[in-house]
Design a protein around this nucleic acid. Structure first.
Lengths: 208, 208
DNA sequence: ATGGTATGTGACAGGGTTGTCATGTTGTTA
DNA sequence: TAACAACATGACAACCCTGTCACATACCAT
């Protein structure tokens, strides 16, 4: 938590500091951001920084909280519309997410570094292999269509994207968390359930 | 690329270095791994390290390549079985991914830090909010079921997980890549397509 | 055994980082 | 205007890190 000193600051100065922090965190992974560069850009002294924040993590937390609030406000309309139909809500949520990213690219970028890893770094290490992975899933789907197992009206790019993302996500959450599934066995079951959903979503129905 | 000097090393020493590198990279984000700690653990001198690798990134790249190879070998059986049915292949791929993570947790962990971000860091910053997010999607689905819009045989946890992951993924790829979709508009279209797949996957069919 | 090549070593320079603190400066209140 | 509180400052200690290089050792072939 920032100190009261920080909150007492003139709005303009406060905003300048936050803006520059956002700029830093949106282009550079947390571990690579330096307080030195930040205070130089924000034109505050080293001592002041430590009068405002406990350390860099304190500032980062504050920034991510601001982002969370901004996004929540953005989604409000979709969250609390009790009447809306399920899939309309889901669509609203997703497209609001996209619009949010479009309108606040820096906010979105910070969120993505946090939740999906540093894309620059990913690119540097992994390079073009992602394209190959995409190609693999696209091929898989195409041959599924040719064999008449996958509905022909499914957008292959989208489905490939979906399968790729879930492929990454499942083992991530298997390794890291009890948030979603409690027991290791549940992950295997979740895979089965997921395939079930996919199957119903894209499989050719008998009689089509 | 490691130097020939490194490849000429006795197998045991080579393996020791790689093992310790894997251990470091699986617990610590790349930006936080230090050559100093690494060489102390591996009991090689600073000079030797630089005789083997250009720098830390060189070693990291090598390690990730090894992991990639290991996983590829693991998936081989599922990749090249031309006869297998589409959804069996997909299921095979996912469950092999889980088994791989189970058998090589360190490999999987390195991959996840690269593709999904550092989970420890995520937890430190985001804390319990992920649980709330999960709860939101679970509620959404449950009320969808109650209103008769979502099939009652869908596993809510799995579907919530799926929706949550895709929510994160869409804006990530909107921001970072031309790998999956070329034009910004296509992302919105992809959202529509995705909802279409989800809808067919989990919506109550008329007549059920 | 001798010369040459391959490998090992750690001190060192040069740079960067964080957090603190004694000392100023500004503002406010009595 | 005097005195006290709030805020600003940047030098500094302590630390860590990378990449290099001159020198030492091991190995191998003639």
């Amino acid at each position: 938590m920032p100190t009261s000193t920080f909150y007492n600051l003139p709005e303009k100065k406060k905003q300048r500091i936050i803006d520059i922090a956002i700029d830093e965190f949106s282009t550079t992974h947390f571990y690579e951001v330096s307080i030195n560069k930040l205070i130089k850009r924000a034109e505050i002294s080293r001592g002041s920084f430590y009068q405002y924040f406990e350390n860099l993590e304190d500032l980062y937390r504050h920034v991510t909280q601001l982002i969370g609030q901004a996004k929540m406000q953005y989604l409000q309309q979709y969250l609390h519309n009790k009447e809306a139909k399920f899939f309309d809500k889901l669509f609203g949520l997703y497209s609001a997410g996209l619009t949010f990213a479009k309108e606040h690219p820096k906010f979105a970028s910070i969120g993505n570094i946090l939740f999906k890893g540093d894309p620059m770094f990913r690119k540097k290490i992994f390079g073009d292999q992602e394209k190959q992975t995409k190609a693999f899933f696209v091929d898989l789907l195409r041959s599924g269509q040719e064999k008449g197992e996958v509905r022909s009206d499914i957008d292959i790019n989208t489905a490939a994207f979906l399968f790729y993302q879930m492929n990454l996500s499942i083992s991530d959450y298997y390794l890291t968390g009890t948030t979603w599934f409690e027991h290791p066995d549940e992950y295997m079951k979740a895979v089965e359930e997921m395939i079930k959903i996919f199957r119903q979503g894209i499989e050719v129905k008998k009689g089509d």
